[in-house]
């Protein structure tokens, strides 16, 4: 199998891509009332279509509804200005799960789902790029999984931070993995 175009190295690192080892993890983070409008219907459609494409090609698609520690358990730091509500569902995933943190692994069955289906190659996308996508990528990477973030379908809370959100992944030779686009992935691994 070929590797795909990505930075700072061609993904995956060892050139051993197999769709049966791949999972797409879509995170749906909480939305503060002032965030609304940062994601377009077109963006949502892109995520849904990409999830359908990779699933038909044999990937596992997991969508995780992420939470925020400020609303689980005791009332935390929220106030009216930053009232948080659950994000809208993106996909018809194979599995929908819920995490108790901003990170999709925290207090969720995600690690078991990935381990039991032997998925060690992980693609990430969804909301928000700086929060749940990043936290989840960091945790997957610490677990030895080989990760790629799709920056065209990972949506920023603050569009101005996109450049650094990507750069933080690429430093030190790809400290959390690689960065690419869903189109590059589809072209290389799904023949479309």
């Amino acid at each position: 199998m070929p590797t795909m175009q990505s930075t700072p190295y061609r993904w995956p690192w060892n050139g051993l891509f197999d769709m049966r080892d791949f999972a797409l993890v879509v995170t749906s983070a909480m939305v503060a009332n002032q965030d609304s409008g940062r994601i377009t219907q077109n963006g949502r459609n892109q995520v849904r279509d990409f999830a359908n494409t990779v699933r038909q090609a044999g990937a596992l698609v997991v969508e995780v509804a992420c939470s925020d520690p400020r609303i689980t358990g005791v009332p935390w730091r929220t106030n009216d200005k930053f009232a948080l509500s659950a994000g809208e569902r993106f996909t018809d995933a194979d599995i929908h799960i819920q995490s108790c943190g901003i990170d999709a692994f925290y207090s969720s069955p995600l690690e078991d789902v990935l381990n039991r289906s032997h998925r060690r190659l992980i693609g990430l996308c969804g909301t928000w790029f700086e929060t749940s996508v990043h936290s989840t990528m960091r945790e997957a990477n610490d677990r030895g999984m080989e990760c790629v973030a799709f920056h065209d379908i990972s949506f920023c809370l603050n569009p101005q931070s996109k450049k650094n959100t990507i750069s933080q992944i690429e430093m030190s030779g790809g400290i959390f993995g690689a960065v690419s686009t869903s189109t590059d992935f589809s072209k290389t691994f799904c023949n479309c």
Binding site: D68, T78, N79, L84, I102, T131, N158, N164, M171
Partner: peptide
């Protein structure tokens, strides 16, 4: 951090959504 821009962006990220981290 190894890059000044990434250091500053990391600090800024903490403050999003009323202090997300």
């Amino acid at each position: 951090a190894t890059d000044k821009g990434n250091h500053e962006a990391a600090l800024k990220m903490v403050t999003m959504q009323g202090g997300v981290f």
